[in-house]
Amino acid sequence: MDGEQGGRIGSKPPGLEGSSDTRLLANPLMGDVVSDWSPVHEAAIHGRVLSLRNLISQGWPVNLITADRVSPLHEACLGGHLLCANILLKHGAQLFLQVNGVTMDWHTPLFNACVSGSQACVNLLLQHGASPHPESDLASPIHEAARRGHVECVEALAAHGGNIDHNINHMGTPLYLACENQQIACAKKLLESGATVNQGRGLESPLHAAARASSMELAALLMDFGADTQAKNAEGKRPAELVPPESPVMQLFLQREEKSFLTPDLELAMKGKSINLTVRAGFGENTLCCLGLHSRRERESTGAPGPAPGSTTLPQGSAKTLVSGFHGFKSMLLPLPEQC
């Protein structure tokens, strides 16, 4: 677990003899006093627990910061090294400015822990006061965890008040990122935690991302949580229009649209009962006409009974014709003239 490599172990860092003041090491104007890499950083990034303890006992401070404002705690979390992170926190890195320290790239130790996927480091940092909310939209812990598929990190952040619907302009929501990168387990965890199913990136919904990726499992998951199959993106396209024609995902969309079209009353009609039809998804009376229902012309030629004026009651057997027509026309339904 602990290698004994690394330079200058056993000596105090330059400028620290007889002084506990470490601020000079974080001053980029001090030239060589600011080291881009110290033995403490080296031990932390590689998880060398024994070396880290020895360095601390010899007077090396735990809050050394490089010119890019990277601390040993950043490095320990980036490597997912819980024991090293714990040692650093116990020896002073638990100060608010350190546990929430921001690098020049806006990375916090918590963000780095989400990069590595270490739930243990995430929990440890949160217990020591790390904020689940990003200092900058350039480095959001929950977005990074969702993008990489680190379910446990997402769960921990959500449990500590992380905003699961945090929407960043250039990335969207964590759910959108999970779908875009086909991280099914993360998407499911976010939805179970209450993420808004239709909120994505701009007008692009998570279902658009799943359709574009042609992911059957993701699309089904999102639809199970109420995703809007009719939502249009900035190009005016619905999710189904982004699915490759030969993809089996297209059949899933057709099945779900059919299911949403069939109201409970309509299902009763399929059993041979007259019902009041609730028309969904913009299917007007003229559209129903084109699907083979008893249009005026058909009624006149066959003598079939029609609905009373102002009524949407369907005669027996009409629903079966409607469902058959739906399969034929799929989702390419267009209103027809009244005389159809």
Rank of each mutant, 00 (worst) to 15 (best):
P132A: 13
M30H: 11
L83M: 13
K271Q: 14
Q94L: 13
L314T: 02
P239A: 01
V33L: 12
I45T: 02
T312V: 06
L82S: 14
V62L: 03
K188G: 07
N163D: 11
A139T: 02
E235K: 11
L110I: 02
G10M: 03
K259S: 14
P141D: 10
L221S: 09
P239R: 01
P39W: 00
T108K: 11
S35I: 07
P305D: 01
K259Q: 15
K271R: 10
E17C: 09
I142S: 05
P134G: 10
A210C: 15
V197K: 05
T263L: 02
P28W: 06
E338Q: 11
H170S: 14
A159G: 11
G92D: 03
E155R: 04
C84D: 07
F326K: 15
D68L: 14
P13F: 00
N123P: 06
L334P: 08
K90M: 15
I65C: 08
T103N: 10
I164K: 00
I168P: 00
G202R: 08
R296I: 01
P141Q: 14
H74Q: 08
C114W: 05
F326Q: 13
H170A: 06
E152P: 03
A146M: 05
L221A: 04
L125C: 05
E298N: 09
A159Y: 05
L262M: 03
A145R: 01
N181M: 14
T229D: 12
S140C: 15
A120Y: 06
P307W: 07
A209S: 14
L125I: 03
G202K: 05
G328N: 12
R238V: 04
L138C: 15
L78G: 12
G200I: 06
K271A: 15
F253P: 00
L190Q: 02
S35H: 06
A195Y: 03
G317H: 03
H143Q: 06
G101P: 04
F225K: 03
R147F: 14
A130C: 09
F253I: 00
L175A: 00
E285F: 13
E300C: 11
E75W: 14
L262F: 06
S274C: 09
S205F: 13
V151L: 02
H41R: 07
P132L: 05
T22F: 03
K12R: 12
M223H: 15
L314V: 09
I65L: 12
A43P: 00
C77L: 13
I65V: 10
E338M: 11
R299M: 08
T108W: 09
G101Q: 04
Q316K: 15
P61M: 00
L125P: 00
Q316M: 14
E217Y: 07
G59H: 05
V151D: 00
P305L: 08
G236N: 01
H150T: 01
S274R: 06
K188Q: 13
M332N: 12
N198R: 11
S118R: 04
A187D: 07
G6L: 04
S247K: 02
P337M: 11
H81K: 12
P13G: 09
T312E: 10
A187H: 03
V249I: 06
L288Y: 08
W60F: 07
N100Y: 04
P109I: 08
A227P: 01
V33M: 12
H133N: 12
